[in-house]
Measured scan of single mutants.
Amino acid sequence: MQIFVKTLTGKTITLEVEPSDTIENVKAKIQDKEGIPPDQQRLIFNGKQLEDGRTLSDYNIQKDSTLHLVLR
């Protein structure tokens, strides 16, 4: 499925993911596309910070959902 990740600069990254993917996996995909190390990434969905060990389906993230990427 496709999800979107919006950065603070207003750029939107499109990712191909599975609901069973962990947040860690998603961060690795963002690193592949953008070169941002996962330990600098914080992903936010519906105002909640997403934890590495959880999956997209844990957070009820579905296709065409938009996550927000904050760098630390």
Rank of each mutant, 00 (worst) to 15 (best):
Q49E: 11
L50F: 03
I23S: 06
Q40M: 09
N60M: 13
V70L: 14
S65D: 09
H68F: 09
T7W: 11
V5I: 11
I13K: 02
S57D: 12
K11G: 07
I61Q: 00
D64G: 10
L56G: 01
G10E: 12
I30M: 14
V26Q: 00
E18G: 10
D21I: 03
R54T: 07
N25S: 12
Q40S: 05
F4A: 05
T9S: 12
Q31E: 14
M1I: 12
L8M: 06
K11V: 14
F4R: 02
K6Y: 06
V5L: 14
N46M: 06
D32I: 03
D21H: 09
I13D: 01
V70R: 02
P19T: 11
P37T: 14
K29E: 06
F45P: 00
E34I: 03
I13E: 04
F4N: 09
R54Y: 15
K11A: 03
D32S: 07
E34Q: 12
I30V: 03
T7E: 05
L50W: 01
E24M: 03
S20L: 12
D52L: 07
I30T: 06
P38L: 05
G53I: 07
N60H: 15
G53L: 05
I3M: 15
T22A: 05
E34L: 08
V70F: 14
K6W: 04
Y59K: 01
D39R: 04
I30G: 01
K27F: 14
D64A: 15
G10F: 02
R54W: 15
I13M: 12
N25P: 02
L69H: 01
L43F: 05
D52F: 04
Q2P: 15
G35W: 02
I44M: 15
T14R: 09
M1F: 12
I36R: 04
K48F: 14
P37R: 05
K6Q: 11
T9R: 05
T55K: 14
L50Q: 01
I36V: 02
P19A: 12
V26Y: 00
E51P: 05
I36N: 08
P37H: 14
L15N: 00
K6H: 07
D32Y: 02
G53Q: 10
